[in-house]
Amino acid sequence: MKRNRALSTQAHAVLAALLAAGNDWCHGYELAKQANIKSGTLYPLLIRLESQGYLEAVWQEAAETGRPPRHAYRLTATGRQLARDGLGETGAVSIKSGGGAIA
């Protein structure tokens, strides 16, 4: 069964930022800045997107030596489709699931 449900404006903003990045990897701090949301809102969203297969998350070695590895994100193919579907609609972003249970 397909179900649609409106996303919050914060989810909308994060998806838009990730979609705009295309194949480039994004990082948490910059994403929070771009989407203009707090990190406490961003990370639960990223975790949820990643657990549902909409987001790729990898550890990247820092370019400068001595710096710790950094967690980087980009949308998967289904994530990009999700974002396009959502951003294509006016007003609210919605998620459509082929699997059934997604809201």
Binding site: L7, S8, L45, E50, S51, Q52, W59, A101, A103
Partner: peptide, 24 residues
Amino acid sequence: QNAPPPDRHLNSNDSRIAVVRAAP
């Protein structure tokens, strides 16, 4: 084990799980 609790921004209860995480 892996699924986080629902959050108010996605409002999702998707049953699908995909792991695409690289270890540090």
